[in-house]
Nucleic acid binder design. Sequence first.
DNA 1: TTCTCTGCAAACGCTTTGCACGGAT
DNA 2: ATCCGTGCAAAGCGTTTGCAGAGAA
Lengths: 134, 134
Amino acid sequence: MDDCELIKLFGHHNIRPTQQRVAVYRCLANRCDHPSADTIYKELFSQFPVLSRTTVYNTFRLLAEAGMIRVVSITPDEQRFDADTNDHGHFLCTGCGRITDIPIDGTILEKLCPDGFEVTQRDIFLNGICSDCK
Amino acid sequence: MDDCELIKLFGHHNIRPTQQRVAVYRCLANRCDHPSADTIYKELFSQFPVLSRTTVYNTFRLLAEAGMIRVVSITPDEQRFDADTNDHGHFLCTGCGRITDIPIDGTILEKLCPDGFEVTQRDIFLNGICSDCK
DNA sequence: TTCTCTGCAAACGCTTTGCACGGAT
DNA sequence: ATCCGTGCAAAGCGTTTGCAGAGAA
């Protein structure tokens, strides 16, 4: 995703595309390991020392509230983030700790909505051993 | 569940049925609101002042490791616990904060297992507005 | 005695908050 | 001049750990 597209994306959500916010979002979108705020902070800080942990937290909260990213609460101790907002599940390997995306059949998700309830978010979290750790 | 059954249940998991542990488990099992450790501590402490927060945490960890209870990580800020270990989902109402059990069709859960992965735990978390808050 | 359990206090780690500075409008 | 974003430091909060005393086996 080039800068121009990114800035438009921020614009659509009415979020000012500051240097820090764009860097945080781009860094998240380039990874598929569902990093924590601290992981992103450390990666960016090494290349881009004008950045604080607070700003990473602020940015993730802002982007999550705007629906640009999703919070993945599969790990009990920290929040992880995902730039892919399409419906999918997550698998946490208790061996290596990696979080893998799980494709979910959309029709399965439809059935999960209980009568009279309005579902705004669906999370499917699996734990176990991934194929690499077996 | 009477004391005799409860003590047997502990025995099956090789966990000594101390006063505190039995009280914590019974208190959890009597509730359907998926309480936090602190909620249980406060409820028990009022009737049973020989109890510390540490013991509640210790007990929940022990029972969860033994598979007697489940940790419900649907709330980002704290762990919630559930004495019902059968497959079911959870719905967190963003209006009232209540966590409701969601029946899940077993055949749906089977389909969630990705090829080559060994799933030991499945969590289905939904967020939204419950029928009471609409 | 020996081992386990309990519980206080302190530590820990992730996240949020207070506040002042700097930049954009 | 006003508003918004940033970042340091400190606070907050749920949870875990260290350790000593009590209790069970």
